[in-house]
Structures are given as structure tokens and as C-alpha cells.
Design a binder for these strands. Structure first.
Length: 321
DNA sequence: AAGAACCGCAACCGCTGGCTT
DNA sequence: CAAGCCAGCGGTTGCGGTTCT
């Protein structure tokens, strides 16, 4: 049954790589490639390392065309936008940034970008909040971003697998999908453009009707069970009007549990809610009267600070865009 | 000047889905 | 079909360098 063990953990070397090991690995891979088998590679290359370790060293450090050093504002924007959209899927985010590795981006996010973001989250009087009427238990919110049509925000370079789409609750239209990252046209830095008051990016408009939601059900990606992706985090790119349209429907109760969970364990709650919603029941809320962006700043900071998974973060960040 | 605290990054760990036997 | 391996991924840790007190 099965295969032989990948390596003898008693004899493999661990810890930092020496220049000699690096050159051995590099020379071997440049000469023979990985052969699709990392486990056998270290022995063939004359290295006392685990295949896993070789793979990591190659991908994160030795691979050609890797970029090291400072991240540009443009890269910051892409990371933030994708993080807001898909959470901490570092490999997918890395795929949008040529020369950057998932590990690089993950480290950058954890050490710098997250702090930058925390620093920029200052209350802005121009960031309008529309509260739902007390009689309503739901408050559909459409954020019309009016981004330039070439903006890479929210768009991965490759179509995502159906399982990923299901997992992320993201909706991508199947037709006219233009996945490539295009140059960012805004001249402003990341954080000035996130500051709605000073940015050339128009202030998001919070709508209270469904007029901007023009999803074509026939083009929706479907989950394994045949349900459409969760509308809690549904995004649609409208080619005709060059506008990104985000549709959110949620109750405070669901939002709060989603934000505070900070982990993927929250998804069952959401799916449960979705099921109820499909039955015409929108869940219960004893806390009607505030919206996603109505949480006080300290609470939001606490959530971001305490969450590593990014799921809660992504929801909040989505509200920023 | 020296120790403490902090920071950034490379590497490791553990999990998961897919594949092989 | 079950058991077990593998590649890939995200989270975490450890350590060297830097800054602070």
C-alpha cells in the first residue's frame, strides 16, 4: 500500500541553507529540472535535505526572476485588493505579482502592510454611512466603485477553480472575463486612494435598492451542490459600464458573527443563512440599526489584530473599497 | 556600552486534496 | 476501496539584525 516514506527525518539536515547547498540545488534544477518529484531530488542532487525543504528553498529563494526588496505602492494595492476579495490565499495573490512568492507576500502582510492599514484607518467624515430603517431586518448595500475599467482590483489572473470559487464565495461572470492585471492608472499612493476624501477614486456610493445588481443567473458559477455562490460576498464586473458592482446582503447578526469569527469555521453559519435566505427568511437580528462600516474603529482594529485567517479582514476590507 | 525589546524574514510544521498502490 | 504518500498551501516559529532604553 502507498509509497515509500519521502525521507528519513533522522538524517535530513534542517535550518538555514549554506551557499554550497544553494548552488548544488540550483545547478541540479537548472540542469535537470525538478522532474516533478521533489522527494527524489535531494538525493540525486547530493543534498541531505528533505524534498519539501528543497522545494521551499527553490520556490522562495533560488528560483530565477525573483524580486527581492521593497514592495511598490502598486503591489500594495494589488495585495490589499485581493486580500479584501479572497482573503489570505497567498499563492493566488502571489500569482498576480510576478517575481513575488507567497511566502514573501505573507511576511510582508504580517509585518508591514497590516500595520500600514491599521495606521490609515482613521475616521473619515466623508465616509457616509446609511443606516437601514428600523423596520427592516435586511439592508442590501451595493457599492458602486466606478473604478477605471483596467483596474486590477479583485481580478485574479487566472480563472479560479470551482472549488475555490465555492470556498471563497466569490462570483465571477463567465463571459467577457478579462483576467489579466493591467497597470494601475491612479497616480495616488495606495493609502491616499483609499482615503475617500482625497482620492481620485470616486467616493463609493451606498445604494439602498437593487438597481445596480444585474447578475445573470445563467452565468453564475455554482457550488458543488448546485447553489450559486454566497451573496454575502458577491462581486460582479460589469463590462458595459466599466464598473465593479458589489452586492452585499446581510443582517447585523450575521455580520457580527462573521467578523468576529475570523476563521473559515464561520462559513457554515453563512451557508446556513444563505439557505434561510433562499427560503425567503433572512435570519433574525436583534441589533438592527448599524451597518458593516458602522462598527467603531477600535472594534475593527481589534478584529483585524486578532484575526490571522483573513476571512473577517476581507469582509471589512471589502467595505473599505 | 549593554541588555531588552522589537522587527523582518527564512524555514519549519501541520493540514488538505489528489493521487498511487 | 482503503491505506498511505505527495505537492502545495497557510500558519507559526526561530533567529539574526536593528532600535530602544
Amino acid at each position: 500500500m502507498g509509497r515509500a516514506p519521502c525521507c528519513d527525518k533522522a538524517i535530513v539536515k534542517k535550518g538555514p541553507w549554506s551557499p554550497e547547498e544553494d548552488s548544488k540545488l540550483k545547478e541540479y534544477i537548472e540542469k535537470y529540472g525538478t522532474g516533478g518529484n521533489w522527494i527524489a531530488l535531494p538525493q540525486k542532487a547530493g543534498l541531505k535535505r528533505c524534498g519539501k525543504s528543497c522545494r521551499l528553498r527553490w520556490l522562495n529563494y533560488l528560483r530565477p526572476n525573483l524580486k527581492h526588496g521593497e514592495f511598490s505602492d502598486e503591489e500594495d494595492r494589488i495585495i490589499l485588493a485581493l486580500f479584501a476579495s479572497i482573503g489570505s490565499r497567498w499563492s493566488i495573490i502571489a500569482a498576480q505579482l510576478p517575481g513575488r512568492t507567497d511566502n514573501d507576500i505573507k511576511n510582508y502582510w504580517n509585518t508591514k502592510l497590516k500595520k500600514k492599514l491599521m495606521g490609515m484607518m482613521i475616521p473619515n467624515p466623508n465616509h457616509r454611512i446609511i443606516k437601514p430603517s428600523p423596520s427592516s431586518q435586511t439592508f442590501p448595500v451595493a457599492v458602486n466603485l466606478n473604478y477605471h475599467q483596467n483596474s486590477p482590483l479583485f481580478f485574479p489572473s487566472q480563472p479560479l477553480s470551482s472549488s475555490l470559487l465555492y470556498r471563497d464565495n466569490i462570483y465571477y461572470p463567465s463571459s467577457n472575463y478579462t483576467p489579466n492585471v493591467a497597470p494601475i492608472t491612479t497616480k495616488s499612493s495606495l493609502f491616499t486612494s483609499l482615503d475617500f476624501s482625497s482620492s481620485p477614486v470616486p467616493t463609493p456610493t451606498l445604494l439602498t435598492d437593487n438597481s445596480s445588481y444585474r447578475a445573470d443567473p445563467s452565468s453564475m458559477f455554482q457550488t458543488h451542490e448546485g447553489n450559486v455562490a454566497n451573496p454575502l460576498h458577491m462581486q460582479q464586473y460589469d463590462n458595459d459600464s466599466s464598473q465593479m458592482i458589489i452586492k452585499k446582503e446581510r443582517t447585523d447578526h450575521q455580520l457580527q458573527s462573521f467578523l468576529s469569527s475570523g476563521s473559515e469555521e464561520s462559513y457554515p453559519q453563512i451557508n446556513q443563512w444563505e439557505d434561510k435566505r433562499n427560503d425567503g427568511y433572512y435570519g433574525e437580528s436583534n441589533n438592527v440599526g448599524s451597518s458593516a462600516i458602522d462598527y467603531d474603529l477600535e472594534e475593527v482594529k481589534r478584529l483585524i489584530g486578532s484575526s490571522n485567517s483573513g476571512c473577517g479582514n476581507s469582509n471589512f476590507l471589502s467595505s473599505l473599497f
